[in-house]
Simulated assay, not measured.
Amino acid sequence: MRIVVQRCKSAKVTVDGQVVGQIAHGLLLLVGITHDDTEKDALYLAEKVSGLRIFEDEEGKLNHSVLDIGGAILSVSQFTLYGDCRKGRRPNFMAAAKSDVASPLYDQFNELLRSKGLTVETGLFGAEMDVELVNWGPVTMILDSPTLA
């Protein structure tokens, strides 16, 4: 699994002009899943995301997690994170898991975050989505599950 984590002041996702997920402050997650990903990868990344200290404390140091600040998560599936652009000009998406594998694992990942007490909004898996955010900082991290790290 691969996740782009963006600290945000606000974020929302719309499908066909309708808001399907929206948060105030917290994290926007762009979540990609590959063929070999399992529940173990989802659990690892749910732990990592929920505890990632990328919010400032009173001294301006990055010491607080999304849990510490009472933030929320907007999780958006994004198979293009596994696009391979090394050859030619058109990305190859062979490393991205098919939806019958990726969708249940994506749902499980979001449920693991919820089980930690986080509010988790989502996009619509497989849909053409418009994603908006106010990136705070900006602070952006890329996380990979251990099988890729």
Score class of each variant (00 low, 15 high):
residue 2 R to D: 01
residue 24 A to M: 10
residue 94 M to A: 12
residue 43 L to M: 13
residue 75 S to Q: 11
residue 36 D to P: 05
residue 62 L to C: 03
residue 39 E to M: 10
residue 24 A to L: 11
residue 47 E to N: 15
residue 68 D to V: 08
residue 35 H to C: 05
residue 39 E to L: 12
residue 72 A to W: 07
residue 43 L to I: 14
residue 70 G to A: 01
residue 24 A to N: 14
residue 85 C to D: 01
residue 18 Q to A: 12
residue 78 Q to K: 01
residue 11 A to C: 06
residue 75 S to K: 12
residue 48 K to F: 02
residue 57 D to F: 03
residue 72 A to D: 11
residue 86 R to G: 04
residue 27 L to E: 08
residue 79 F to C: 03
residue 92 N to D: 14
residue 86 R to F: 02
residue 90 R to I: 09
residue 47 E to A: 08
residue 91 P to C: 00
residue 93 F to C: 04
residue 15 V to C: 04
residue 30 L to K: 01
residue 33 I to Q: 02
residue 38 T to R: 12
residue 62 L to M: 14
residue 55 F to Y: 14
residue 27 L to T: 07
residue 80 T to V: 08
residue 20 V to A: 12
residue 35 H to K: 12
residue 5 V to Q: 09
residue 22 Q to E: 14
residue 11 A to T: 05
residue 51 G to Q: 04
residue 42 A to M: 15
residue 88 G to T: 04
residue 10 S to I: 08
residue 22 Q to A: 11
residue 29 L to V: 02
residue 32 G to D: 05
residue 28 L to M: 07
residue 25 H to I: 10
residue 43 L to C: 12
residue 19 V to H: 00
residue 75 S to E: 11
residue 8 C to L: 08
residue 6 Q to M: 03
residue 9 K to V: 10
residue 55 F to D: 04
residue 13 V to G: 04
residue 62 L to D: 04
residue 87 K to Q: 10
residue 92 N to K: 15
residue 57 D to N: 10
residue 18 Q to I: 12
residue 66 V to I: 05
residue 25 H to K: 15
residue 31 V to P: 14
residue 33 I to V: 05
residue 25 H to G: 11
